[in-house]
Structure formats: structure tokens, C-alpha cells
């Protein structure tokens, strides 16, 4: 009884894993829907073929050796059955191949895509660069890609160090990020939501903590977000945050990170101009709160061992100030 109950529970858990946050079986974007249809189609066809083969096998086993009277007259019809089976197999395999070609075509990138976003994989985070046309339009963020719903978005995938792979199962297939070249991926979300993805190619110690969030919003919400991101960081009004800014600019932080609107222009680490507006910190590792920001700054090598953020010696007061400042960069 207990075994049955546990078995049912396991099945229920396995099935519930197929919908929700991160699954190719829960598609919400054009390319992912094509891929899901292909998966379901192939599984259905192969499943039916497998059942038929098993039925024939069972019939042959159960038939027994007793009745052997009509062998010679049956030779010709046997041959016909074999030819028919081979023909059906050829037709099925050819049909699956053709449907796979059509799926590949469906997930291809149309030339005049509405917008292009450059995604650069780094050990172990995602650098996201928006370069729209128009004055002062380009901005940069990290580990979070906002896209408007129902529009084709062309992702230009690059890598700064090793091979990574971009995979948001609910929206699109996998695509590698290879150092020294750009790969293109079509991303399209049919309905608003937060879609999680992650690096799908082993890329080093923290490969498992290299998540990316794709946030699909209605076009108006997206435009509002993009306008906010284009702004330079505001001068903090709170005195503690103001002191935090001074600490940030005086310590090694500013040598690797950019905060637009200040003298910090480092290019090595993520752009922190609007870090307070991002949902997660350290590529999906923890939620962005003042506490997690402070923990990350105080000891990044314990939070995410092996990453390239060094421990910068700060006093307790400085840590308070700098985490207040970071949290306020909305």
C-alpha cells in the first residue's frame, strides 16, 4: 500500500515538474511551441509504432508452434507483410524528418527582427546589452532580459571566456555562446511572465549558478522599463546612501563596475547602474535585498565560490552604507 502511495506521489511530482517555471513542455514562445509540437508528435508516432510492434510480437509468441500446416501457401503473404512494414517504416521516418526540417525552419530568425539584444556569457553571469537606435539609447544590464510580448527578438549570443549555452526552455531552444563569434537565436514570448533559463553547457565551477531571467511584458510596460534603464543613476538623497556612493567610488569597486552618472566606468563586472531594480543577484543565486547585497559584498567567495568578485576589505559601517546605496539604485 505504502509502495503504491509513494509511487503515485513520485508520478505526481514528476508530472508537476513538466509545467511551471522552466520546462520545454510548458512552452510560451513561438520557437518553443514549434519544438514542443515536434516532441509530442514524434513521441506519439513512435509510441503507436511501438505498441503495434509489441502487439505483433505478442501475437507471434502466443500463436504457438502447433499449427504449421499452411507454411508454403503463406510464404507469399508473409513477404507482402514484410514489404508493407518496411514501406510504412520508411514513410514514418521520412515524415518525421520532414517535420523536423519544418520545425527548424520555424525557429529560424527572420531577417527584419523587431529588436536585437546582445547577450555575452561570462564566468558566471550574463551581460545583456541593449543597443537601440537613437541618441543615448544603449544601456546594459545583467542576468535579466526584458522583452516585449508578441515581438520577434533577435539575440546575438557571444562569449567572453569559455563556451556557454543559452537555454530558456519555455521560450526557445538551446544555443551555444562561443568565444570569438556571434550566434543568433530568436526569442519570442506569447504571453507576459517571468521565464527562467540557465547555462546549458558546463562552463566551470559555478556553472550551476548561472541562471538568467527573461521577463516578458506588455510593450507599454517594456518601454517604461527601458526608459528607466536608460536614465543614469540618481544621486542618492539619503545621507547613508550618499556615503555609500563615496565608499564605492573610493574603493576598488569602481575599477570593475560601471554606474552611469558617476565616475565608475569599470567594464569587467556587471553594470550596476540599476542593480536595485533587478530581481536576483549573482546570476539568479539570491533575491536582491539589502541583506543579500551586503552578504555578497562582504564575502562573495563564500556565497559563490570561484567567481571573479574579490573580497574588498570594508568596515561594518562602510558595508551598511554601500549596501544601502546599492539597494537604492532602482
Amino acid at each position: 500500500m505504502r509502495i503504491v502511495r509513494n509511487g503515485l506521489l513520485a508520478v505526481a511530482l514528476a508530472v508537476s515538474g513538466c509545467s511551471g517555471n522552466q520546462s520545454a513542455m510548458d512552452p510560451d514562445g513561438g520557437p518553443a511551441i514549434h519544438i514542443a509540437h515536434l516532441i509530442i508528435g514524434i513521441v506519439a508516432v513512435c509510441g503507436v509504432a511501438w505498441v503495434l510492434v509489441m502487439v505483433m510480437l505478442a501475437a507471434a509468441l502466443l500463436r504457438g508452434r502447433g499449427r504449421t500446416g499452411r507454411e508454403i501457401t503463406n510464404e507469399r503473404s508473409l513477404m507482402r507483410a514484410v514489404i508493407a512494414a518496411v514501406a510504412v517504416t520508411v514513410v514514418i521516418v521520412a515524415a518525421l524528418t520532414v517535420s523536423s526540417f519544418f520545425t527548424t525552419r520555424g525557429i529560424g530568425v527572420p531577417e527584419p527582427a523587431a529588436m536585437t539584444i546582445t547577450v555575452r556569457g561570462q564566468q558566471w553571469w550574463w551581460q545583456v546589452m541593449y543597443a537601440d537606435s537613437g541618441p543615448n539609447a544603449s544601456f546594459e544590464t545583467a542576468n535579466e532580459i526584458h522583452i516585449p510580448v508578441g515581438r520577434d527578438v533577435r539575440l546575438e549570443l557571444q562569449s567572453a571566456d569559455v563556451i556557454h549555452s543559452f537555454w530558456v526552455p519555455s521560450l526557445a531552444g538551446k544555443q551555444d555562446l562561443v568565444p570569438g563569434r556571434s550566434n543568433i537565436l530568436l526569442l519570442r514570448a506569447e504571453k507576459p511572465g517571468i521565464y527562467r533559463g540557465q547555462c546549458a553547457e558546463f562552463c566551470g565551477l559555478q556553472h550551476g549558478h548561472m541562471a538568467v531571467l527573461v521577463i516578458a511584458e506588455a510593450p507599454a510596460d517594456y518601454e517604461r522599463w527601458a526608459a528607466g534603464q536608460r536614465q543614469t543613476a540618481l544621486l542618492p538623497s539619503n545621507p547613508e546612501a550618499l556615503a555609500g556612493q563615496a565608499v564605492f567610488l573610493g574603493k576598488p569597486c569602481a575599477a570593475c563596475h560601471t554606474i552611469r552618472g558617476t565616475s565608475a566606468h569599470g567594464k569587467t563586472g556587471p553594470d550596476l547602474t540599476h542593480i536595485g531594480s533587478r530581481l536576483t543577484l549573482a546570476a539568479g543565486l539570491v533575491e536582491t535585498t539589502r541583506g543579500s547585497l551586503a552578504a555578497w559584498i562582504a564575502d562573495p567567495q563564500t556565497v559563490k565560490p570561484g567567481n571573479n568578485m574579490p573580497t574588498v576589505a570594508l568596515t561594518g559601517v562602510e558595508l551598511q552604507q554601500i549596501s544601502t546605496y546599492m539597494e537604492g539604485l532602482k
Binding site: 573610493g250 574603493k251 576598488p252 569602481a254 575599477a255 574579490p310 573580497t311 574588498v312 576589505a313
Partner: peptide, 9 residues
């Protein structure tokens, strides 16, 4: 580089 890099780096 005193103010730009931690000493370990």
C-alpha cells in the same frame, strides 16, 4: 593601483 585592486589581486 592601491585604490583600484584588492591586495590579493
Amino acid at each position: 593601483f592601491r585604490d583600484r585592486m584588492p591586495i590579493e589581486q
